[in-house]
Design a protein around this nucleic acid. Structure first.
Length: 485
RNA sequence: GGCGGCAUAGCCAAGUGGUAAGGCAGAGGUCUGCAAAACCUCCAUCCUCCGGUUCAAAUCCGGAUGCCGCCUCCA
């Protein structure tokens, strides 16, 4: 497949270095708070990448870490009156709740920083020995950025550019403002581990270098993360790992775009923040997942509840079609008959198009376009009273059903039983609109009476009454069905 | 200030040289007691603007304007 590689800033043909094996490392969360939509996007994007690589037959080793010791966690622990370990454990558990809801698969290895202190100390010792790092009197260890020739190659910066933005915090004993911490001496009350430089804890950038190398051979095939991690985090990882090992660190760097609110970055300081919980209180997880996949992973994605409602309609349309296909296939009487070749050709086109879309830098938005193509095709077959009873129609509908099922495994959407999803969706929408189901049922009962008496005026009056409650009634062969307007 | 990205219909959005996917909304039609759903048809002579390259550009190059991100923790 073709993947956009930040290292080189171009789409490149991706093939694994070691036969059929693919190594993928993605920077996971710092466990100090509930996950927001940005985490959801990153997780879902790389989840689809893993699923797709596996779909293609690769043997993928997927490692995603947890940062479980860090300034923010320590700060949060102080606020909550907990230990930093307790805070990390709490939010790792919350992470799993959200990710399971979103259908994000577990990684093969999910290493925690605190369980790899020894590896990080060893890595740091090696860097000091080779002159790439130095310890200060107070027990900090810094990486000597100017000792690594390739620094800046990922983010496209040079040392001079960086100098203008660099600064030294008070109390830091850096030899050069560009240097970054590998090891931080413990301040009173902070969690610490013993080291050759005294008690302290690892710097953030160091973890990923140590943990990726432990579980996968270098170079990694793919290293992923959010766009903001490219600099300095990923740049620093490259410097540490390549300076320490002399090997290339990662061949492909994949970065997902940001979630924005009104075209601005979502952030706590701007107060435009939504957690995954906020969303799932009002919408089904699949709606959010579909929304996240409806744009290319590298584009900025503007979040709003209005946009989510639009996605909800899209999801509903597809499930509605799948339900109709399912119901049609449950029939038993099939006849011989002609079937238009053009429908089969169109279906082949969508099948091919879907595969090509993902092949081209994981273009899920384009892939969804082909999914809708197939949905329209199903509708066309089902709408034609003569056509839909033919054996060829049956076979084609089954082929559509199979195609969507296969695609759903890659995208992680449309995999539920349609009737179950649609029932959940109705409940979800009714709750959001504040609809009282008992009240609706009573009105529907009255309307049924009126309809039995052919009193359409009364029936329509009740329908208006229901509409005022944001309830829409449909008369189907099976009776009245209601949904949220 | 340095580095980078984006600009496609009412809205969202795909599309990196061959003549504008898809979704939502909207209009007409089939169906229906009337509706709804579903289906069919229509809905950008044109891709922010100005130049250039080319037989051919939304797609490449130069410039302008606007928006955004990174350079500090951040998916």
């Amino acid at each position: 497949m073709r993947l956009y590689n930040t290292l080189g800033r171009a789409k490149q043909e991706f093939t694994p270095l070691r036969g059929n094996d693919v190594s993928l490392y993605v920077c996971g969360i710092t466990a100090y708070d509930l996950c927001h939509i940005g985490h959801a996007r990153s997780s879902v994007v790389f989840d689809v990448l893993v699923r797709y690589l596996r779909f293609k037959g690769y043997n993928v080793t997927f490692v995603r870490n947890f940062t479980d010791v860090d300034d923010k966690i320590i700060k949060r622990a102080a606020e909550l009156g907990l230990t930093s370990q307790e805070v990390a454990e709490k939010y790792i558990a919350e992470f799993y709740v959200d990710m399971d809801a979103l259908g994000v698969l577990r990684a093969d290895v999910e290493p925690k920083c605190t369980e790899h202190i020894a590896e990080m100390i060893t890595l740091t010792q090696g860097l000091i020995k080779d002159g790439h790092a130095y310890a200060t009197l107070s027990g900090d260890v810094y990486f000597k950025v100017r000792s690594f020739e390739g620094y800046g190659k990922l983010s496209g910066r040079n040392i001079e550019d960086l100098m203008s933005g660099a600064r030294v915090e008070p109390g830091e004993e850096k030899l050069d403002p560009l240097d970054f911490a590998l090891w931080k001496a413990a301040k009173p009350g902070e969690p610490y581990w013993p080291s050759p430089w005294g008690n302290g804890r690892p710097g953030w950038h160091l973890e990923c270098s140590a943990m990726s190398e432990k579980y996968m051979p270098l170079p990694l095939d793919i290293h992923g993360g959010g766009q903001d991690l490219a600099f300095p985090h990923h740049e620093n990882e490259i410097a540490q790992s390549e300076a320490a090992t002399g090997k290339e660190f990662a061949r492909f760097w994949v970065h997902n775009g940001f979630v924005q609110i009104n075209s601005e970055k979502m952030s706590k300081s701007l107060g435009n923040f939504f957690t995954i919980r906020d969303i799932l209180a009002k919408f089904l997880p699949e709606t959010l997942r579909y929304f996240l996949l409806s744009m290319h992973y590298r584009s900025p994605l503007d979040f709003s509840f209005d946009a989510l409602e639009e996605s909800e309609k899209g999801v509903r349309r597809i499930y509605t079609a799948l339900l109709q296909v399912e119901e049609a296939l449950a029939g038993t009487k099939w006849s011989k008959g002609a079937f238009p070749q053009e429908i089969l050709d169109e279906l082949s086109g969508y099948e091919k198009g879907f595969a090509e879309a993902l092949e081209d830098d994981l273009n899920t938005a384009a892939a969804l376009g082909h999914l809708f193509g197939v949905v329209r095709l199903a509708g066309r077959i089902l709408e034609d009273k003569a056509l839909r009873k033919t054996e060829a129609a049956r076979d084609t509908l089954a082929r559509i059903q199979a195609a969507v099922a296969a695609w759903s495994k890659v995208l992680g959407v449309y995999g539920l039983a349609p009737a179950v999803f649609l029932a959940d969706l109705k409940t979800c929408r009714a709750a959001r609109a504040g609809i009282d189901a008992a009240q609706v049922d009573a009105l529907l009962e009255k309307r049924l009476e009126a309809r039995k008496a052919k009193d359409f005026a009364a029936s329509d009056a009740i329908r208006d009454e229901l509409a005022a409650l944001r309830v829409e009634v449909k008369d189907t062969p099976l009776g009245q069905v209601w949904d949220v307007l």
